[in-house]
Write a protein that binds this DNA or RNA. Structure first.
Lengths: 244, 244
DNA sequence: AGTGGTCCAATGGTCCAACCAATTCCTGCA
DNA sequence: TGCAGGAATTGGTTGGACCATTGGACCACT
């Protein structure tokens, strides 16, 4: 007898049900990020559940960054929601800053190379001109502000992820990017961080424009390698100064 | 005047305080993953807070995958905790159609290849014997149950991710894996799904044992390619039957 | 008109005391 | 000895209460 054909009935799934109802509500009302959703008391009354149950559900959403709660004001939507969302709680444990950053770079190396290759395969002519435009903006910013072009740099990469045709690349790498910057903001660190990666942006673009997936992949790998080198230099410097 | 020099003050942080206390408790008691931590009622009494507050804190941990709650049994630790943990809740807007599955495979292809290469670089002798053990278990299960070895197959791959030394590989690929299976479990689909990937498990192992990163990467790519082929065959079949 | 002060209703945060539901364990019967 | 059945335990839910913060309305004074 196949036990799997008898899934356990769902007697208790209150807070999950609340979340599903909330997804429905957000979609029905076409709520945009930033808008306020009903108060906990109203939700509890409408859904015929206790306010505590509503709060547990909202706590889960808050933990996922989907929602923000402000006491005295209300609960606000922070991101778009859809019925079939995949929640991926990444926990980077155990380590000092350096190993954590290297781990994010290992992920980014794999994805960046793949995205560049896919981009070279699939880019239309319009896509290529768009990427070139971002590249020009970045290069100009780099020259005028002497290396401080992180914003324009990031936009160039994002354009590549978008052209790759797979939104997962942008979402995952964006998470890595944020995690990386959360550490790198503080003043300590090598001064000309990122300088070495500069020339590879153009070579990546050239390989994409030439519809050369393998070449684009190789150039992307070189770019990440320069970032890893910078990171190692920064770590060595910190170690030398006796810091953690 | 610099407005940024006046960050908002922090007045209340009850549940955050509870979580910090819990981190301290877990470390003080040296709790290992799988062990049970105190009941909500005891925690509430010891920490001099309401049980609701304890529940909100535990709900957050549960959302992060750090803890698992079993009604009637207790709350169990699921992963190691440390004071300096970085949580990055990533929510992917994934659909359940063919293109979404292909997109998860593109991510998995990139990460699987990188993980296999890193594994080949860093595996110790003990690591290699452990991977070989998982491989033997999987191959035996495959033969005796005629292809139904998804559980053992997955454990083989997980062993590789672990040896790669970067926990992010396992976390991200596990999410892709879950998303994939959430769709593939139901009966429709090609019957011998996964058969074609079977021989490449051993070739991957052989390249890892030979400390050949590039070879391991190539074999991993071949394995994913067979899965992509299976998926395309399944999609064509569904299309032929007039389904979505 | 603008500035600051006071008040008040709305809202999230916390607390309490129950009861429900699933699990675990142990007792007593066969 | 084995096992059926009933506590005891534990997370899940409820309803009600109060606190802390917010933001707007209103007002007095400049």
């Amino acid at each position: 007898m196949d036990q799997n054909s008898l899934p356990p009935i769902q007697t208790t799934a209150r807070d999950d049900a609340v979340l599903k109802a909330l997804v429905g509500f957000v979609r029905a009302e076409a709520l945009q990020p930033g808008e306020r959703l009903p108060t906990e008391r109203i939700l509890a009354e409408r859904l015929k559940v206790s306010r505590n149950t509503v709060r547990e559900a909202l706590t889960r959403w808050e933990g996922l960054g989907l929602v923000e709660r402000r006491q005295g004001s209300g609960t606000y939507l922070k991101a778009a929601v859809s019925p079939d969302m995949l929640h991926l709680p990444l926990t980077l444990a155990g380590g000092n800053d350096f190993t954590s950053l290297m781990q994010t770079l290992e992920i980014r190396r794999a994805l960046e190379a793949e995205a560049a290759a896919l981009c070279a395969e699939r880019a239309s002519v319009a896509d290529i001109t768009e990427i070139e435009r971002k590249l020009d903006i970045m290069e100009q910013a780099f020259r005028t502000r002497d290396g401080m072009s992180s914003e324009e740099d990031w936009e160039f990469h994002q354009a590549i992820y978008r052209v790759s045709g797979n939104p997962l690349f942008e979402q995952i790498i964006a998470a890595m990017h944020e995690l990386f910057h959360r550490f790198w903001e503080h003043p300590l660190g090598v001064r000309d961080f990122g300088h070495a990666s500069f020339p590879y942006h153009r070579t990546i673009y050239e390989r994409i424009a030439a519809r050369d997936p393998q070449g684009a992949r190789d150039e992307a790998l070189k770019l990440i390698a320069t970032v890893e080198d910078d990171l190692k230099r920064g770590a060595a410097k910190l170690k030398f100064l006796g810091q953690t």
